Simulated assay, not measured.
Amino acid sequence: MQGATMGKIGVFDSGVGGLTVLHALHRRLPAEPTVYLGDTARVPYGTKSPDTVIRYSRTNARFLLQHDLRLLVVACNTATAHALEALQAELPVPVIGVVEPGARAAAALTRTRRIGVIGTAGTIASGAYQRALAQAIPGAEVVARACPLLVPLAEEGWTEGEVPRLVVERYLGDLRGSIDTLVLGCTHYPLLKEAIADVLGPQVALVDSAEATAAAVEDALRGRPAAGGGTPTRRYFVTDVPARFPEIAARFLGHVPEAVEQVDV
């Protein structure tokens, strides 16, 4: 196909949360071949030092570059916060993280400039979203909050009913009426959108950072379509025994992934 470009979209995360980004990419760019790496042997990144996160991110990127990439997505908020600039400076392909697209989407949605952002303790402590929102929306009032229990709820499939609603109420109930936009600053959180929306009400717009990141990738590749022909390849790698990976991944992707391979990066 004239103008078509060879190469895959590479995506890495510390575990399985980045599969929400991959799912959004598959919906937006169904013809694009992808390769995913979940660093399940070293998860979570949020408890690691910035230097360690940068080191892990470099090894993940080097592994994925072996698979003929034309673009890399850092689908981990902690890795985006600490390693994105280093990867962008060092790698021979474009690198997109999950923080800036979410901040830009919030800037487009907010009416009052009162914005909430939720994430893991590591992401919130890094200040990455707070800085990105300050740049995207000068003068914005930003409330940042860690919601660590939402990750295990998403992975266990407890995304509907009383339990997730009570947890979300405990974390976010006091924000009702005080913000008009909430950034879901963890790739697990889109699975709990229904519970979050139920607690905060329809007056609060939810920004899905996975969807925002997929839109940013689509923009970056505009005019550079993948080579046509056949079903695009979709490969999945993990750094620890994949045991429950297919089961958990199905909650994020909406289907059981094809063969999952274990690798040492």
Rank of each mutant, 00 (worst) to 15 (best):
L69P: 14
L71D: 10
V73D: 05
V74Y: 05
A75D: 12
A75Y: 09
C76V: 02
T78P: 11
T80C: 11
T80I: 09
T80K: 02
T80Y: 05
T80E: 11
A81P: 15
H82K: 02
H82F: 15
A83C: 10
A83I: 08
A83D: 13
A83F: 14
A83K: 06
A83T: 12
E85Q: 11
L87H: 07
Q88M: 15
Q88A: 13
Q88R: 11
A89P: 08
A89K: 08
L91E: 04
L91A: 01
L91G: 00
P92M: 09
P92Q: 05
P92Y: 15
V93K: 03
P94G: 04
G97I: 06
V98N: 10
G102S: 03
G102H: 10
G102E: 06
A103W: 10
A103C: 04
A106D: 06
A108I: 11
L109K: 10
R113H: 15
I115Y: 08
I118K: 09
G119T: 03
T120K: 05
T120V: 07
T120G: 00
A121H: 13
A121Y: 01
G122I: 03
T123N: 06
A125C: 01
A125R: 12
S126E: 11
S126R: 06
S126H: 13
A128E: 00
A128Q: 10
Y129Q: 00
Y129P: 03
Y129K: 03
R131T: 14
R131N: 15
R131Q: 07
R131H: 15
A132G: 08
A132I: 08
A132L: 03
L133R: 01
A134F: 06
Q135P: 10
Q135W: 12
A136H: 14
A136D: 05
P138G: 11
G139V: 03
E141D: 07
V142H: 09
V142C: 07
V143R: 09
R145V: 05
C147S: 15
P148C: 03
P148Y: 06
L149P: 02
L150M: 10
V151P: 11
A154D: 13
A154M: 13
A154F: 01
T159P: 02
